[in-house]
């Protein structure tokens, strides 16, 4: 006599099949993510081949951008991308740190959640809004007040002067860097605040217990403990700044030139793509644009991979 607890083997087989099918489906989609990234890299690489074959490594060092003679070089775009991101970091990191310190050490607990939410809302604002705000509000203010001031005060100094020379246009590398700084600020602040709060209370309180001031606790206890995570957060912000398109396109001035002055117009890789891609005529021009996209992808990939590794290391250390 069969026990009531025995499941008919046909039913079991069917269930096993269903399980395998489900697992296979999820595996398929998961692999699809890999295929997607691979596809993007391949599509970019293939599209960039004509440009690289024609110009070789010179594409990275040439500052020509002449659709008439079909001479293209990526240097102005790469330079602009790096410089605007650098300015963004110089502005965003101190502000983000200040906010993180305020929220974790100073802020009364009742206000912590609302202020934290407000800062995170900064991250939710679409980048195109930053762009038009920069164009309509920030650029005129810079052109009429801040930039003339910078030129007057700093323009004649020996080394720094070169950074602040030229007519005040309102648009340019500096303006783009400032807008980018405001954009990445909430991202870095969110990550830094999160890693700051992973510091065990006991560590911090022992420091306070021996009489350390808040600033000293942050500098000597919190920061060293969260070093990997903080650097990871910074690099996440950097990755974001490098790839940002719309906020920059509005205010950078669209000039394929490298000038020492921060007040000069310039361009970034993504702004160049946004402006010129739908209109590039000729295989070499289009291929040069895709090559720029490929370079941007490589740069952001390296930065993001490094950030991810840093954050992974922090997670492992915290788990210990």
């Amino acid at each position: 006599m069969a026990s009531i607890l025995t499941v008919p083997s046909r039913r079991l087989d069917r269930q096993r099949l269903q399980d395998a099918a489900f697992r296979g489906t999820t595996q398929l989609f998961a692999l699809g993510v890999l295929v997607l990234l691979g596809g993007i890299v391949m599509a970019l690489a293939v599209g960039a081949v004509p440009a690289f074959r024609r110009f070789g490594w010179a594409f990275l060092t040439s500052d020509a951008w002449n659709p008439v003679t079909e001479q293209f070089g990526g240097l102005p775009a790469i330079y602009g991308t790096l410089v605007t991101s650098l300015i963004a970091m110089l502005i965003g990191i101190p502000l983000a740190f200040g906010i993180a310190v305020f929220l974790t050490e100073l802020c009364p607990p009742a206000l912590r959640r609302p202020i934290g939410t407000l800062i995170e809302l900064l991250a939710a604002i679409p980048s195109i809004i930053y762009g038009i705000w920069g164009l309509f509000v920030l650029a005129p203010v810079l052109q009429l007040t801040v930039q003339p001031m910078l030129i007057d005060i700093l323009g004649d100094l020996p080394v720094i002067g070169a950074l602040f020379s030229g007519p005040p246009l309102g648009l340019g590398v500096l303006t783009a860097g400032i807008i980018l700084g405001f954009m990445v600020l909430p991202f870095i602040a969110a990550v830094v605040r999160d890693v700051f709060s992973t510091v065990p209370a006991m560590l911090r309180e022992s420091a306070y217990g021996i009489g350390a001031t808040t600033a000293e606790v942050v500098r000597h206890i919190v920061l060293p403990y969260t070093r990997a995570g903080v650097i990871g957060g910074i690099m996440l912000g950097l990755g974001r700044a490098l790839g940002e398109t719309m906020a920059v396109t509005f205010v950078i001035g669209n000039a394929h030139r490298i000038k020492a002055s921060l007040l000069a117009p310039g361009t970034t890789i993504s702004a160049t793509l946004a402006n010129e891609f739908t209109e590039a005529v000729g295989t070499l021009y289009t291929s040069s644009l895709i090559a720029l996209g490929f370079i941007l992808f490589v740069i952001t990939f390296i930065v993001l991979a490094a950030a991810k590794l840093m954050l992974l290391r922090l997670e492992q250390e915290a788990a210990k």
């Binding site: 998961a30 692999l31 993510v33 890999l34 997607l36 990234l37 596809g39 993007i40 599509a43 970019l44 599209g47 996440l236 990755g239 974001r240 490098l242 790839g243 940002e244 398109t245 993504s270 793509l273 946004a274 891609f277 895709i290 996209g293 941007l296 992808f297 952001t300 990939f301 993001l304 991979a305 991810k308």
Partner: peptide
């Protein structure tokens, strides 16, 4: 392969969206 997929996913998460537009074009 799961950690690799996770890693790749995070890269895609922060990839410049204009590159994705180029790809779909």
């Amino acid at each position: 392969i799961a950690p690799v997929i996770r890693f790749v996913n995070d890269i895609l998460l922060s990839a410049p969206s204009i590159i994705i537009g180029l790809f779909v074009y």
